[in-house]
């Protein structure tokens, strides 16, 4: 269950737009962009708001708490450098935005949709610290609710 923590996996190469996010990770903050005009959250990092086209995006700190929106435990790795099994998840953060990450420090079979998780940070190199998620001990599973369509 410690699979993705190895140092030889491919690490992010930050861009001018994404650098503040990765800088936050180095400082132990999960940073996301928020729009001054429409108050929407934008992730992955952008040069303008994808909700309303505003250029007034600010970097803000997320609470880092959320739930597993969806997850998959991988048994055939993307590359041999990833030790299997490992669990990939879409985490829905409290503020309502989504990001991909790994859920670790928890038996894979116990990771399920709706499981409350919180961010923690793992230094991989001098430049890159990765935000990963772990179970919030004692918190109850939140069953997913169906989208309001149809």
């Amino acid at each position: 269950m410690s699979a993705p923590e190895r140092g030889d996996i491919p690490l992010p190469r930050p861009t001018a737009v994404s650098a503040p996010h990765w800088e936050g990770c180095r400082k132990g903050e999960l940073r996301v962009q928020r729009c001054d005009d429409c108050e929407g959250y934008v992730f992955i990092p952008q040069a303008y708001c994808t909700h309303c086209f505003s250029e007034k995006l600010q970097w803000v700190r997320s609470s880092g708490r959320g739930v597993v929106y969806s997850c998959t435990t991988i048994h055939r790795p993307q590359r041999q450098e990833f030790e299997v099994p490992y669990t990939v998840a879409i985490v829905e953060l409290e503020e309502g935005w989504h990001m991909l990450s790994n859920v670790i420090d928890c038996p894979h079979e116990e990771i399920e949709v709706g499981m409350p998780v919180e961010v923690f940070f793992r230094e991989m190199s001098p430049e890159i610290t990765l935000p990963m998620f772990r179970r919030v001990e004692g918190a109850e599973i939140v069953p997913p609710s169906r989208p309001e369509t149809a």
Partner: peptide, 14 residues
């Protein structure tokens, strides 16, 4: 190869 995908070990099946 994206910086918000690759490091988590995703690929098409995931």
């Amino acid at each position: 190869s994206n910086e918000f995908v690759e490091c988590w070990g995703l690929y098409t099946a995931a």
